[in-house]
Structure formats: structure tokens, C-alpha cells
Amino acid sequence: MEDDSLLESFWAVTRRLRERTKITLEPWHVSPSQSRALGVLSRHGEVRLSVLAERLHIAPRSATEVVDDLQERGLVERKPDPTDRRATLVVLTPGGVATAAAIHEARATEGERLFAGLDPADRTELARILNLLREAR
């Protein structure tokens, strides 16, 4: 890592994570954004399409496209919001629940592989630093 700056090292790790994520998701034929949507729905249950967009940090139009693709594959379904007829809720189907769980397990295994070279103290310190960066806005 001779003359690499901290930022260059960070980007190199980010690229490596993206590459591994794409490979990890291949068995389910989902994109990273579709995987993230499945994860949000798995953790939070049914949510409005607008809330899903907010949690994914994407435009509502993009969230609609993600949900359209997932719905076409039978992983999610839309249903009317009983408290607001203008709103739509998105919910995982049983197939979506199974897919989200399988993806979560595969990503956890891949994460363990990535961080396996760090001793427990380094892992703890890295987690602390990453949480600081995540919270700094």
C-alpha cells in the first residue's frame, strides 16, 4: 500500500465490496438495489413506496422501478394502504421472504470472509470508525 492515501484505500475496499456483492447476488439474479429493497422490507415489514425510497436513499421513481422488477419476479406485492387510499404499501411475498433470508445469509458469509484477516481488536476498531463515518453527515 506504498503511497496510497486513506481515501484511495477506502475506495479500493469499496470497489472490492461492490464486486463481491455482485458475485454474491448472482444466484438470485437481483441487482444490489433490489437486494437492498428486499433487506429493507425484511427488516421493516410492509412499508409505503415513499418510505422505501427514503430508506434506500433513492428517488421515488427509482423505487417504483425496483419494486416493479421485484413484483414481476414474484418477490413483492403492492397493496392499498388502509389508512390512505392514495398510498401503496409494498410487502414481501413468501418467495421474497425466502430470497431476502438467503441473500442475508450469503452476504453475512461473504462479510466474514472479507474481515477474517482482522483480529478481534481490529474488527472492533474498524466498526467503531465506520460507525463514526456513517453518523457524520
Rank of each mutant, 00 (worst) to 15 (best):
H29D: 13
A63L: 08
V51M: 08
R123H: 06
E19R: 11
M1A: 14
G117S: 12
L132P: 00
I103A: 05
L41K: 08
E135F: 01
G117C: 09
S9L: 13
L70S: 08
V76D: 06
A102T: 02
L75D: 02
L70F: 06
A127G: 05
I129R: 15
V51E: 15
A12R: 14
P80D: 11
E19F: 02
E77G: 02
W11P: 00
E46Y: 03
E72M: 07
H29M: 08
N131W: 03
D68P: 00
H44T: 02
A53G: 11
R61L: 09
G45L: 07
D119Q: 10
A63F: 05
A87L: 12
A106Y: 01
T83D: 14
V13F: 12
D81K: 03
L118P: 04
A12N: 11
A100P: 04
R107Y: 00
S35N: 11
K22S: 06
R128S: 09
L49M: 13
P80T: 11
E8M: 05
E105F: 02
P32T: 08
V66M: 04
T24I: 03
L75M: 07
T99H: 02
W28L: 04
V13Q: 12
A127Q: 10
V51K: 13
L89V: 04
R85V: 10
L7M: 10
W11L: 15
D69T: 13
W11D: 05
P80M: 08
G95H: 12
R73W: 01
E65N: 12
A63K: 06
D4T: 06
I23E: 14
W11R: 13
D81R: 04
T14H: 13
G39M: 11
G117Q: 07
A121P: 00
L89Q: 05
T24S: 11
L17G: 03
F115Y: 14
D3W: 07
S35R: 07
H57N: 11
A116C: 02
L38M: 06
V97W: 05
D81C: 09
R55H: 10
R128E: 10
G96W: 09
R15N: 10
L130T: 11
V30W: 03
P82G: 05
S62A: 15
L41D: 06
S5A: 09
S33P: 01
R15E: 14
L49H: 03
R86D: 10
S33V: 15
V47F: 01
E72N: 12
L126A: 15
L126G: 00
L7S: 08
E54R: 15
I58Y: 05
E65P: 00
A106H: 01
E110R: 14
A102G: 12
G117W: 08
D68V: 04
A53Y: 09
M1K: 03
R107S: 03
S50K: 14
E72A: 14
P82R: 07
A87E: 15
H57K: 11
I23M: 04
E77A: 09
L17T: 10
S33N: 11
R18P: 00
E46R: 15
P27Q: 06
L6R: 07
E77K: 12
L92E: 06
T93M: 09
T93S: 13
R20Q: 12
R55C: 00
E105A: 15
T93L: 09
E46T: 05
R36I: 01
A87N: 14
R18Y: 07
L7Q: 11
A136F: 02
T83K: 11
T24Y: 01
V76P: 06
I103G: 05
S33M: 13
